[in-house]
Design a protein around this nucleic acid. Structure first.
Lengths: 206, 206
DNA sequence: TACAAAAAAAGAATGTATTCAACTTTTTCC
DNA sequence: GGAAAAAGTTGAATACATTCTTTTTTTGTA
């Protein structure tokens, strides 16, 4: 264990993040003021800003936790996927979706996505973009694996198709979080309708 | 011509919008305050809010102008497309891209996109979503046209594939506006790399 | 033309994210 | 152990979008 100062710092940061996870979910991201978080974490407003540059930074920290868990789940699936490429793509997609609302609400996702588009040059924007890239790459990896197994034609541009599939699952997810009445089942159905036509084309090349 | 009041209203709205088009481009969306627009339009801050509910509403009004012009250009292309489906898809995509920066800057696009994700239930959010849907539909229409001409297999789900192609061109455009150093040429190259693999699969079914 | 009602404009007041200068705590060094 | 330096905390001040109440302008009517 480090110095007193280091312990205090780690503790304060943890308190702020916990307060945010709890309050954002309970009261809604927008309605929670920095002052509310400061109070719950027993620090001052200024201190919150010593740990997180903006309110959005706090959110991105939570998104990072969520997506890193999702990536781990996804990796397990990539390492041991269903036999059929089309099924595997959908399984991976559903895996992402199923683990997307542990820490985050739809409102929080909306704000995080908005942030990544609006402020791509900030540390948080970059952080979100990195996560996005990792997810897209994981989809590409899955396709590569099938290609190596000889289940897909070698001339196929697996990374590009991975990107295509990811763009669709990502846009479908955006549609999901921007419609509060849409259920996870609806989302699965929507993405299936987009992914299946692509997946059905794949084997034709072999 | 209507009553005095109607003429004044129309004139004020026009002045506010003109001020916004000019100032947002010149000084950047974020740096322009409502007060600046009010001053340029020779009205008060309160009056700006009588015409546009939020700062974002003003932006969406400009986006609407831009996209409606783009849709008209796109329709001309759909009505008289290149012979090859793959080429036609790219031509339509480039047409969108080439007319995307008349009124808007990358920063303005970023804010508008962020807004549509973040506040999908507001009038402006819905307005943006509608434009998006129209663009996606236009891509689907192009594919339908080829299908009717017998150039694509009838069992192909043209609207779904239109959506897939649109998702890619849209995500590529997001990548473009979120990277200030990316040129239109880069953007064209990127989207070509994604669209071509899809397009090459299409004729295999016939 | 003059007056009451309706509509709209004005700008002061409010709320909240963020910044900043002054104050405390912790560490370092003797 | 104590003084100086470094690091961190604090909450008041700032900036700007948005709201709200008051004042002004326009309209309809006698």
């Amino acid at each position: 264990m480090g110095t007193l100062r280091e312990r205090q710092k780690a503790d304060r940061e943890k308190r702020i993040l916990s307060a945010a996870v709890h309050k954002f979910r309970a009261n809604g991201y927008k309605r929670v003021r920095i002052e509310d978080l400061a109070e719950a974490a027993e620090v001052s407003v200024g201190t919150v800003y010593n740990y997180y540059g903006t309110k959005g930074d706090i959110l991105i920290a939570i998104v990072t936790m969520e997506v890193e868990e999702v990536l781990a789940e996804g990796q397990a699936l990539v390492d041991n996927p269903p036999t059929d490429p089309g099924e595997a793509l959908l399984a991976l997609t559903f895996c992402y979706y199923d683990h997307s609302l542990n820490y985050l609400t739809k409102e929080m996702w909306r704000r995080a996505m908005a942030l990544s588009i609006e402020a791509p040059d900030t540390p948080n924007g970059r952080r979100y973009a990195t996560l996005d890239t990792k997810l897209a790459k994981q989809v590409g990896d899955l396709l590569c694996r099938f290609q190596q197994q000889g289940k897909l034609a070698p001339e196929l541009d697996a990374p590009a198709l991975g990107r295509v599939v990811f763009n669709n699952l990502n846009q479908s997810f955006i549609d999901f979080v921007t419609d509060d009445s849409m259920t996870l089942d609806n989302l699965r159905a929507n993405v299936t309708a987009l992914t299946t036509p692509i997946a059905q084309l794949l084997p034709k090349l072999t």
